[in-house]
Amino acid sequence: MATTETTKTIGSGFPIGRETLVKWAPLLVLIVLCAFFALMEPRFLSTRNFARILIAASPTLMVAIGVTFVIIMGSIDLSMEGAVSVCAVAFAFCFLWLGGTLASWAWLALPIAMLVGAAVGFVNGLIHVKLKIPSFMASLAMGFVGTGLALMMTGGDRIRIEDELFRSLLTERILNFPLMVYVAGIFLLIAWFIQTRTTLGRNFYAVGGGEDLAVASGLNVNRVRIMGFTLAGVFFSVGALLAVGRLGIAETATGNNFMFLSITAVVVGGTALWGGIGGVWNTLVGVLIVFVIGNGMVVIGLPGYVQDGVLGILVILAVILSTDRKSISFVK
């Protein structure tokens, strides 16, 4: 993603500033969407349906939060499909090998999966930074490697995880919402903490806001980048764990569709592809928009394939709207 930026021009003709509009537009869209679907079909508003949306959204939320950090730095990570598959399969193998139930040493499979995710992200970052390959291509290639690795490990088979304790992520409900929704919530808070209360979080914004400035002020940009990709990998692995918990199956296809859904969610949530703007709350709103659209369309009776097209249009519109056209001369 090579962009050339000239000086930022400030101010625009709108009575409400463009920045305010861009900041609140995603939330407005979400509310309008919910109102629209509720009007079309009152059942949309039931707790049951909300639980359904949140269950479907939780794994994607984790993946999208991971890629949010990378996008804030102005890079992008397209390796999520491979990373999620590898983490899911690695987790399943370790879990079954160590005993097959969370009540035994098999709980170690959880941190192992997260380490695998971190490793994938770390390699991603290394390839991007050390070989100086644009991140979209480096991570896309790593994603292919990851999917291939998962395929090699499973030989194309599905691995079932039937441990009741682990499946309680889906089956155990508190206040009508299953545990995995709360787990996702906790990791959302952790991500928010990293974003706002740690040096690393602030460094992501520094790199994304203007790399020259970050370098000039003595920041080790390469290190921040590698750490960003590693952190993204950890969140991908959490997404993988939730995905396995939801279906009870780990396979090469576990990672399918995560790339487009999570990128769409991040961009629609208002995090700019150019970096420096947005954050994890934007991503939460974005993920909700994507899944409310998906769910709402099914609820009002539209066929599933419309969703792909609508999301495709949405992501293009979101990037167009979040781009300050005066500050960009060309894109590749």
């Binding site: 487009f260 419309v306 999301l311 249009i313 990037v319 167009i320 894109v331």
Partner: peptide
């Protein structure tokens, strides 16, 4: 519209997929 080509083509791909399905 200044959308980076990998995003623009990724999104157009999904619109095409929608049509194919």
């Amino acid at each position: 519209q200044f959308v980076p080509s990998f995003v623009a083509t990724l999104a157009m791909g999904f619109i095409a997929l929608s049509g194919a399905r």
